[in-house]
Write a protein that binds this DNA or RNA. Structure first.
Lengths: 217, 217, 217, 217
DNA sequence: CATGAATGAGACTTCATTCAT
DNA sequence: CATGAATGAAGTCTCATTCAT
């Protein structure tokens, strides 16, 4: 739901718009929104700075559109997961997996969200960021609480601490993730889930007792 | 610290300097470095923008000093830990604990580091950020590898993924941590370590009906 | 910048031209020439900004054509009046009446002229505005002077002040006049003339002993 | 005037502001608000464009301050006149005189007001222009109506037409008035009032019929 | 030490204008 | 004839920085 103010030229060409937004997102993610000049985006897109304004109202509206596009898609998927009626553990697994998929698809948008959402949320225009964050907390924290009640998640931990731990752990990944890397989003999700759920320490399983048949050279 | 040849006119009282840096750090952390105007810092400090230049060469040098102060202290502590010759698990525990203590002491600086280090590292002046990151990786990744070799950390995980998981897990906390909150840094460290090492899932009932006969005690 | 050596493609239908000019004039009058964007005119005309350039060389040439069209017509009528050899009072009456008729026909153009002519006159392209103003002054001031000489206009007033008074009195009306209002141009002219010639004050009781002898015819 | 070296121009804030506003007003009046660049104002003031922003928020706020300063003063004087309880004719005389004095004092502001107020009034920030215009109409139209009722002003004229006639007649003078000219504001007011009240035509003095007997002495 | 005023570079944005389709 | 997209110049404004007082 971007701007709906004055200009009758709302959607000149969806494709070009999309390309330009992708370019902008990439630069915003790499340099930070404030540090990114509109000229830099234009250079990257092979046009002059002023030309961007044929497609967008302002630098801010580009940011806006990048974020809303991402959040809309994220919530479509999250909502589907939450509506599926899975048990807490499977819900967490699904949410984490969808999150990594979203990072895969909208890496730049996620990185921007991570870096900028806190101070953007103060502006009325970006109020939806706060809304989204609240919904986000409801979904994750609620699921964790159900899990604790169902005795599948530990009860001896501060639940909010756990929430932040899981949440951040997943989303910071956007800062280093590169599509087409060694692991697929699903594989990363699997390993993250394994760490988050079971820890990185070796289970009591006697590190010595039973000597596993090692690989014969 | 490469450049130190500029102004020999550097005789302001160290206390005032410290106060001003703390103020600046707070604003940088809250709004982002680029989005912060020198005037805003001056306002917060009760003076005019121009007056800050009696104390500092530039806005950038404030940022520089904030980051180096933080990193210098961090490394003093990390080096002490690493020099102590602890086993991998205790080393990780100590590093995590020191990290949370550092977040407690330099919350603003840590938050700035998180948000800005990536694009700052490109500038020569901030080359030390890259150095620090490399040392950081050596320390943590090395410890994890030793732990895997010693079979105290799981071997079935991608080690770099594990590294990023542990690293991020700890440092993102700076984005929400507020000194004087419900938990002390040490308590947060304890819980985080517990999650990271053992996971958030409840262990399956140890004495399961069937197969697993191996656990000795 | 009179660039007119490139496009021989000037074969638009005169009607469309006229419509577009009327639209442009309306917008120029409402918002001011400088504050009016070519896009606004195009919007109002139901086309895109670029499309206007099929019909006109430039925004300035639209303004030019609007003003010359108006002035040409005005001078045709003024010249007819001046050529009629009326006495000073009847000449003034005729000029005023024609002026209001012109305001009725070219309200927008007159309003533009009022607002913009002063600074436009500085540009060579609009030199004709200065010429017109000089002719205008000759016509009006000359008539007034003849009237003073003939003792039909007061001699105790600064003649230039009188000239400006009469001139402004008539033309500012363009700022509020709307065609199709309560009064016809002729009626407005009649009342204005009555005010200008005889004042708005009630005449002191029969200024002379003798009661007014009735009209002869 | 480029800045000469040794100018001991110690200009305290309010005075400098005032000077700059006067400069701006002059340029706005000469070229029109929209056609005036901030750089032009700065040039005229002997500084760089950006430097103006140390004193003012924006170009618009300069305009705002110019207009409010003028209107505040105008209304102080108008209100004094209206509160004096004069009869309709003397009230009109006083209002006209004060108006010409105001034109003398704030010529530029008045000229700006004339040219720009109509489209500025649409913006919320300049809503006070509409308010002022309404008060203005109340004052003048009301006085004229009282005068008609008291039979000192003609009843055979459309009163709103009369109002506009008197109002415009006075205020357009700002477009040609130059302080220090041949006539003082009071003298101009006297002549204008004479024209408005009694007309420019020679009184009853029969242009031909009967030779005026009275003014022989 | 601090202020007040200014500089200068560069940012975002607007807009008249062009041109291939 | 009109559109869609772009250009390029110019305009308003911001801000780190300087410097005389």
């Amino acid at each position: 739901m971007p701007n709906s103010k004055k200009k009758p030229t709302m959607t000149p060409s969806p494709e070009r718009r999309g390309e330009l937004l992708a370019t902008a997102a990439e630069v915003f993610a790499a340099q930070g929104y404030n540090a990114t000049t509109v000229r830099r985006i234009a250079d990257e897109a092979g046009m002059l700075a002023g030309s961007l304004y044929y497609h967008f109202d302002s630098k801010e509206s580009m940011l806006d559109e990048i974020l809303t596009t991402f959040l809309d898609e994220l919530w479509a998927r999250y909502d589907a997961v939450l509506a599926a009626g899975l048990d807490p553990r499977r819900t967490i697994e699904a949410l984490v997996t969808e999150s990594f998929r979203e990072i895969d698809r909208h890496r730049a948008a996620v990185a921007i969200y991570q870096k900028e959402s806190r101070h953007l949320a103060a502006q009325p225009r970006f109020g939806y960021l706060t809304d989204s964050q609240r919904k986000f907390e409801e979904a994750w924290l609620g699921t964790l609480e159900r899990g604790v009640a169902a005795k599948v998640f530990r009860a001896d931990l501060d639940i909010r601490l756990t929430y932040r731990f899981v949440r951040d752990t997943v989303w910071v990944a956007a800062s280093w993730y590169r599509p087409g890397g060694a692991h697929s989003p699903e594989e990363i999700a699997r390993q993250y889930l394994s760490m988050v759920l079971d820890g990185i320490a070796v289970r009591e399983a006697p590190p010595t007792p039973a000597p596993p048949p090692e690989h014969s050279p």
